[in-house]
Simulated assay, not measured.
Amino acid sequence: MVKSDSEREVRGHRRDGDVTRTHILEVAGQLFAERGFANTTSKQVCLQAKTNTAAVNYHFGSYQGLYMAVLQEVHQRLLSLDYLNALADSALPARDKLAQFVESLIYDLLENRSWHTRLWARELMTPSAYAVTAVQTYALPKFGVIHRLVAEVSGLALDSPALQRCVLSVMAPCMVLLVVSHELDTPLKPILQQPTAVLVEHIKIFMFAGLDALSHHQSTPKVAR
C-alpha cells in the first residue's frame, strides 16, 4: 500500500520528535549526574541540548517532568522491572535466579559506569525533592521481586522480618559498589580494580553461605535453657 504524502510527513515528524526527546533526555541525564538536580537549571539543559524550553515542555510537560523521565530511564537501564519479573517467573532453579540477578547488577554497576549509575548514586547519597517519588514508583516494585527471589532460596515467608534482613544482606554489597567513588583513592579502590568476575564470584559465595547458614539456623530446634 502506497502511503500518502501526509502520512509520510506525520511519520517523519514522529521520528524526529523521538530523536529530539531522546537527545534531551541524554543531555539532561549527564548534567543531572554531574551536578545534581538542584544545581542544574533548565537553561543549562536547553543550551547543552541546543533546544528551547518549549521543546522540554512539549516532550516532558515541564522541567520537573523531564527529571522524572530521566529517573525512569535510569531504572529502565539498571535491570528493568520487566527483566526482573521475567527472571523471577523463569524455570531456572531458585539459586540460579538469584545468582543471575546479582551478577547482572554488579556487571551493570562496574562495567557500564554511565550517567545512569552516577545519577542514581547521587540520589541515594543526596536525595532530591523527587527521590521519594522515584523510589516508590521505580525502586520498590523491583525490591518486591528481589524479595521473592531471596524468599525462594532461603525458604522464608515473604512477610518474615528475617527475610527483610536477608534482602539487606544481599543488596548491601551492591549498594556499596553503586555509591563508592571509582576516582577517589579510598580503601575500596583496590577492590574495584580487580576483575569484575572475581568480585562477582566472591559476593555470590558469601551470599549463598549466609543464606544457607540462616536457613539452617531457622530450622534448627532451639534448646530451652
Rank of each mutant, 00 (worst) to 15 (best):
L168C: 10
I106H: 04
W120A: 06
L168S: 11
L110K: 12
F143T: 09
Q136W: 10
P161R: 04
D159H: 05
T117A: 14
C166H: 07
S128R: 00
E123A: 02
T133P: 09
T117G: 11
A99H: 00
T133L: 11
R122M: 15
V150L: 02
G144K: 04
A99C: 00
L158N: 02
L149G: 00
S169D: 10
Q100P: 03
L105W: 10
P141C: 04
S114C: 10
I146A: 01
T117Y: 10
G155I: 03
H116K: 12
V135H: 14
E103P: 02
C166F: 08
L105E: 11
E152V: 02
A134G: 07
V153M: 00
F143S: 12
V150A: 01
P141R: 01
Q100K: 12
V135F: 11
H147A: 14
Q164P: 08
G144F: 06
R118W: 08
L140H: 12
S104T: 09
P141Y: 06
N112Y: 09
V145Y: 02
A139D: 12
M125K: 15
R113T: 13
L119M: 08
V132A: 14
A129M: 11
E103D: 07
D108H: 10
L163A: 00
A129H: 13
C166Y: 08
H116R: 13
S128H: 03
V102M: 06
V102L: 03
A151C: 07
F143K: 13
L149R: 00
R165I: 07
T137G: 03
V167P: 02
P141S: 03
N112S: 09
W120C: 07
L110S: 10
R122G: 15
V167L: 05
I146P: 00
I106R: 04
D159F: 02
N112W: 08
W115A: 07
Y138S: 09
L98S: 00
Q136F: 07
A129D: 14
S128P: 05
W120L: 12
L149Y: 01
A139F: 12
S160F: 04
L98M: 00
V153L: 03
Q100D: 08
L156Y: 03
V145G: 00
V150W: 00
G155Q: 03
I146M: 02
L163K: 01
A121E: 13
E123M: 05
A157I: 03
L163G: 01
H147Q: 15
W120F: 14
